[in-house]
């Protein structure tokens, strides 16, 4: 009946954990390891792979195509840097947009607060494609923005609003705003308002109060929000696909191309690994800093 001589508790624990452990081992850890392996394999001629160690996929990300040093062309590095730039811009925009609003919401009555939080969480449930599609309608040449500007007489010819870095940033800000707002709001909500009064009583100017009291105390929320916006922005391919066009490619579009059109899977896997490495660096810094803070250093 019980050959391993386990207690009832141990049996219960094993029963509870086995399904998830097996599932995630096979369908999550497994695929991740295979992708890591793929990033070190040579792409075959017709979309397959050659099973031997090949490090030039990573060389290619930096600009050396297939190990030939003469042809240095950092096209992928440029796209990577552009992705980082657009993601940083998205993070900064969402931060500046959400921070004041979080304070405003925290001053409302309990009922209005609940309403605002509901309005902030609702977009989580609405389809991302639909929300992005709204911006396609607004920004395209015969779109709402141009119609509006022409009607007011500000412009006579439609502006090219789509297919620009700005359009991509607007789209990403729009879909990731709740990820920034909710963590910031929860830290603003926890802020003891008496501290602001105390700071003022001690003669601090509003700016000093902000810099020395408010900002440090809401920093955990800011950092969490920035990470939650930066990571999905970096790997995003739907926003640049719909609003950026061919001119504003991001690393996500490169990965898609390698898999669906160029059929160079090892290189696509390599680009994915680059995203994972960057994510790991950010998360380890975050965890290191937050554990250090908890330890009281």
């Amino acid at each position: 009946m019980n050959p391993l001589n386990l207690s009832r508790k141990q049996l219960a624990l094993i029963t509870l954990l086995t399904p998830t452990s097996l599932f995630l081992l096979i369908f999550f850890i497994g695929p991740m390891l295979i992708m890591l392996t793929y990033s070190f394999l040579e792409p075959g001629l017709y979309g397959g792979v050659e099973w031997h160690f090949y490090h030039w996929n990573y060389g290619r990300v930096l600009g050396w195509a297939d190990g030939i040093y003469e042809e240095f062309d950092p096209v992928y590095l440029k796209i990577l840097l552009r992705s980082i730039g657009l993601s940083v811009a998205t993070v900064l925009c969402t931060l500046f947009i959400c921070y004041p609003v979080a304070f405003w919401v925290s001053t409302l009555s309990a009922k209005n607060k609940a309403l605002c939080i509901f309005l902030m969480t609702l977009p989580f449930f609405a389809s991302m494609v639909v929300r992005l599609y709204a911006w396609v309608l607004i920004l395209r040449n015969s779109g709402f923005a141009n119609q509006f500007l022409e009607a007011t007489g500000l412009i006579t010819e439609p502006l090219n609003l789509m297919f620009s870095g700005t359009a991509v940033i607007i789209g990403m800000v729009y879909i990731f705003i709740p990820f920034m707002f909710l963590p910031i709001y929860s830290s603003v909500e926890k802020l003891d308002k008496n501290l602001l009064q105390a700071s003022e009583d001690l003669g601090a100017t509003p700016f000093t109060t902000f810099r020395r009291v408010v900002f440090p105390l809401t920093l955990p929320g800011i950092v969490a929000g920035c990470i939650l916006v930066f990571i999905p922005s970096l790997g995003n391919f739907v926003v640049p696909d719909l609003l950026g066009g061919a001119k504003v490619l991001m690393i996500g579009n490169m990965i898609e191309q390698q898999f669906l059109y160029a059929r160079n899977w090892p290189f696509g896997a390599t680009l994915s690994m680059v995203i994972i490495f960057m994510m790991m660096i950010i998360l380890s810094i975050y965890l290191y800093k937050s554990t250090k803070k908890q330890a009281g250093l």
Partner: peptide, 18 residues
């Protein structure tokens, strides 16, 4: 925790290869 923060595209292509 990791599958939640993993960017969609990374998980998507890892599963595709698998």
């Amino acid at each position: 925790f990791v599958p939640m923060v993993m960017p969609d595209i990374v998980l998507g292509i890892a599963l595709l290869i698998f």
